[in-house]
Design a binder for these strands. Structure first.
Length: 193
DNA sequence: CGTTTGATGCTCT
DNA sequence: GAGCATCAAACGG
């Protein structure tokens, strides 16, 4: 359970519920902060696209921990992806943060994303946002609810249902048709419409 | 525009 | 050894 300014979101709910509820929340990282505008849900053993589908391994161990911790993994040898662990402990559910709208584009964010020529390209993808905010494997497993955490989540009231679009997930070789991606319809900061 | 391809290294079989 | 919850540059029309 994560609370902030009277907003309460039970992260122990299923990842598909939490993924929607997290839209609008603020993710804080070492380089700056951003509003979550796009998420994807990954389930436990029942979701073949989830890292949890093949059971607990050294890499996925944080996924099987309590809800509200951060799961960061390396992909394609050079990018990181940041996830919020959800659901019951031991289940392996998580929500991938796919895009953020920077609260303010800081100098360290620019320095971390030198190839982003346009502002909207700074954090409109899971690998890009980790670069921009400075999130990497050293933050794997930390508690997102702790005020002192280097990476933390500040909850906001979830947006109204009619502002949210549900779509299929991106970049998968299995379960491509499962519509477990959500994004803010009017946001220019999402990775793909 | 849109589509294809190369980079790069960890993880699990 | 194969594949990967990605990104950016190169290519083609």
């Amino acid at each position: 359970m994560l609370r902030h300014d009277g907003v309460v979101i039970d992260l122990g709910q299923h990842s598909t519920v939490v993924a929607r509820a997290l839209l609008g929340s603020i993710l804080h990282g070492p380089n700056g902060s951003g509003r979550v505008v796009e998420t994807e849900a990954y389930g436990g053993a029942e979701d073949p696209a989830s890292h949890a589908a093949r059971g607990l391994t050294p890499r996925t161990e944080p996924m099987f921990g309590p809800a509200g911790i951060l799961y960061v993994y390396l992909i394609y040898g050079m990018y990181h992806c940041a996830n919020v662990v959800t659901g019951p402990e031991g289940d392996g559910q998580a929500v991938l943060i796919r895009a953020i709208e920077p609260v303010k584009i800081t100098e360290s964010m620019r320095a971390a994303r030198p190839k982003a020529r346009r502002d909207v390209d700074i954090a409109n993808g899971p690998g890009k946002l980790c670069q921009a905010l400075g999130i990497d494997r050293t933050h794997d497993g930390l508690d997102l609810a702790k005020p002192r955490s280097r990476v933390r989540l500040e909850l906001a009231k979830p947006p109204p249902k009619n502002a949210i679009v549900q779509a299929t997930r991106i970049g998968l070789s299995v379960a491509q048709d499962t519509p477990w991606r959500w994004y803010l319809q009017d946001s220019a900061w999402v990775s793909k419409r």
